[in-house]
Design a protein around this nucleic acid. Structure first.
Length: 213
DNA sequence: CACGGGATCGTCT
DNA sequence: GACGATCCCGTGT
């Protein structure tokens, strides 16, 4: 039985990913390594979490699908240029809050979009936030819905994932995902990205029922 | 199950 | 003023 610490909800046999994980200059490798890690939120003392089963990589230097392509710094994208280990969260289609992990060294904008979770902790609260009757992958399979399930909004964009009092962090719970279990394919919804459209920068755990459509 | 369209608004041109 | 790194529901099969 896993014991929970009152203050953070972090399991005793897990560890919060350290800054050294995030600041590496390799968003593709980090996207792969995030599979099997646990995204956890603490909103008003309420812990919810899920295992990451789908990610997408974005990189400003050469990727036309990235909001910061061509090193475009705006108020919205500024956080992507900071040192890795923060949240980049933005509003999509006026409705959905999409959660990204900023990676890489300062001034080298890279980020990983978390696209789907296998729900783990506090399913009833996640279900309540989603407003759905039936439990199933629709709870947290999809970048917009997983944010809703975890109570994450763009108001949290820029927060550190490393501080003890962070509302969001990522844990290693000793789940191992081998390269053979990872399916790489083109990213979703980036038709405008010209020659980058077909780059296999979307990563999924093979066979997971919790990946997005 | 596949497809089509509406929702809804911050962000950038 | 146009358009999304999406989701859900309705329709038809």
């Amino acid at each position: 039985m896993i014991q929970k610490k009152e203050s953070t909800g972090q399991s005793l046999n897990s560890r919060v990913l350290p800054k050294s994980f995030y600041i590496r200059d390799d968003v593709l490798q980090i996207s792969r390594e995030l599979l099997g890690k646990y995204l956890v939120s603490n909103i008003g003392g309420k812990i919810t979490s899920g295992m990451i089963v789908e990610t997408e990589a974005y990189r400003a230097s050469d990727d036309k699908a990235c909001h910061a392509y061509n090193n475009r710094r705006t108020k919205r994208t500024e956080v992507m240029f900071q040192e890795g280990g923060r949240a980049y969260i933005y509003l999509c289609y006026g409705i959905h809050h999409l959660f990204n992990v900023v990676t890489g060294p300062e001034d080298n904008a890279q980020a990983v979009l978390i696209r789907a979770l296998q729900a783990e902790d506090n399913l009833p609260l996640m279900q309540q936030r989603r407003g759905i009757q039936r439990m199933g992958p629709q709870l947290s399979a999809g970048p917009g819905v997983l944010s809703k399930a975890l109570g994450i909004t763009k108001l949290l964009s820029g927060v550190s994932l490393l501080e003890g009092q962070s509302p969001i962090w990522i844990e290693d719970r000793n789940k191992v995902i081998s390269d053979e279990e990872i399916l790489a394919s083109p990213r979703v919804g980036i038709d405008y990205a010209e020659e980058c459209v077909d780059w296999p920068w979307r990563f999924r755990i093979k066979g997971s029922k919790w990946t997005s459509k």
